[in-house]
């Protein structure tokens, strides 16, 4: 059997922020009532994480869990684990009203890495997304679903100031090109002070 390939293997651009495709990434959509015990137990058993609070991403022992909507989270885990964990969770949730579906191949994921605390990364995203990216308005670990120019995206910025951005696979090239253009040297706007 062939190894799965990501949308833009090895794509990377270094401007005043470096954008790189993150390679294959396991992703599982979990829909259900987040307060249901069965759902929380299944999530804890599979990922070692609790249900995230609204708009947060939390790390577990076997992956991370990102809040998507009031009845949906996205589980991030190694690509090779996704099929097994889907089966495990489907079994654990048999008889429950919940949906567990492997969406690992439906998306592309990028990282945006800057030079300092992430002020430059926030600025590059602010060129494309109608979102207040000031650290006070979008703290580390908050998941924001929005648009980047004309494509739907979700992203969060981690404690190291690195942004992780997910888009649909078919628009990976478009999103990569957009971010690269925005990160081109000379386009530094100085929107956020870098302490």
């Amino acid at each position: 059997m062939s190894d799965p390939v990501s949308a833009l293997p090895g794509a990377r651009y270094t401007g005043y922020v470096t954008v790189a495709e993150a390679g294959v990434q396991g992703m599982i959509t979990l829909r259900g009532d987040p307060s249901a015990d069965a759902l929380r137990r299944a999530l804890r058993a599979a990922i070692g994480a609790d249900m995230p609070d609204r708009r947060r991403i939390v790390a577990g022992t076997a992956g991370a869990v990102a809040w998507m909507s009031p009845d949906e989270v996205l589980i991030l885990l190694p690509h090779g684990e996704a099929a097994r964990v889907v089966a495990q969770m489907q079994a654990a949730l048999a008889g429950e009203h919940a949906l567990v579906v492997d969406v690992s191949d439906a998306r592309a994921m990028f990282t945006l890495r800057g030079k300092g605390s992430g002020a430059d990364v926030r600025e590059v995203l602010a060129k494309l997304c109608p979102v207040d990216l000031a650290p006070a308005a979008l703290p580390a670990g908050e998941v924001r679903r929005t648009r980047a120019a004309q494509a739907a995206v979700a992203f969060w910025i981690d404690a190291a100031g690195v942004a992780h951005l997910i888009c649909f696979r078919s628009v990976a090239q478009y999103v990569f090109d957009l971010i690269s253009l925005s990160a081109r040297p000379g386009a530094e706007a100085g929107l956020f002070p870098d302490p």
């Binding site: 120019a149 494509a151 078919s170 990976a172 090239q173 478009y174 090109d177 253009l181």
Partner: peptide, 15 residues
């Protein structure tokens, strides 16, 4: 703004 040339609008590609 950025919307010109290759990124005038999203061009969706299949695998």
């Amino acid at each position: 703004g950025e919307a010109r040339g290759d990124v005038f609008q999203p061009l969706r590609r299949t695998p």
